[in-house]
Amino acid sequence: MFKTHLMSAAGLCLCATGALAQVPVLTIYTYDSFASEWGPGPAIEAAFEAECGCDLQFIGNGDGAALLARVMLEGPRTDADIVLGLDTSLIARARQLDIFADHGVSAAFDLPVAWDDPQFLPYDWGYFAFVSTADVEAPTSIAQLADSDLKIVIQDPRSSTPGLGLLMWVQAAYPDDSAAIWEALADNIVTVTPGWSEAYGMFLEGEADAVLSYTTSPAYHIFAEDDQSKVAWAFEEGHYTQIEVAAKLADTDQPELADQFMQFITSDAFQSAIPRTNWMYPAITPQGGLPAEFQGLARPQTALLFPPDEAAAVLDGALEEWRAALSQ
């Protein structure tokens, strides 16, 4: 008698956990600022949960490189269903892991370069640029900046995504004399910081005339602070492009939900959350267009970008050149 009660009690418990488990969980690894209260995460989570009947969980990890390191540490046993937040400089290494599946999504992207990667789906993009104030006379190229007396703060390519972007920018724009450019830039560089935040903070405190950031950075100051004084310098040789992508894990335990989210990335609900939270260009311009503060931003004539394999191939040489030029 007692035993039967115990059995039915156990049965009840099983039912209860079963009922809880019926809300499937979709786990997305991303970088910290995407998942944070001020990033796109909360709005996108709410919009997707409204249509999926699931629990969407963003797990934030440092920046893009830290995100990839986490996926590599976890290996094939990772709990992630989707990884969102890698960029073009990380794709080659991510692909080598051989853990991502084709996304199967086709969309008309508003990207400055053609994109047809079967595994990595773009969700936003931007141009690296030097951000300065309107009262500083803007140089029109990296070479002119290097010849000037202007002072800049940059990030270390070994620890920061924009830092790596500038390294690639110089390689792409000056393939034959990148070393000379770095040597000429050396006396313009006030200092090199570990990450974007330190550099941007130093620029705002007046430590430099300009900081390496994105062409979209001034939009934040216009929107949030009503400050029109920040400008991005447009360079005639073109700007290196950052394209941020998402990919689905091949052995996700939520394949349908993961597919549904990959499709959702191209939706208006997702894309319209990007500009004012991630301060980047959405991969597909939402129906309402871009917010007003994005309208007057500098739009470079030329978008520079190495294909993932080429970016991986030039990295070591470029890094050594950078180190040698700035160590003198």
């Binding site: 270390d156 070994r158 620890s159 910081t193 890094l319 700035l326």
Partner: peptide, 22 residues
């Protein structure tokens, strides 16, 4: 790194960071 003004001021810890991330 920040006050050293650039890669001249690379410490072991930064090299560890580089090995891990890059």
């Amino acid at each position: 790194l920040t006050l050293g003004g650039g890669p001249r001021a690379t410490t072991i810890e930064l090299a560890i960071y580089q090995a891990f991330r890059l």
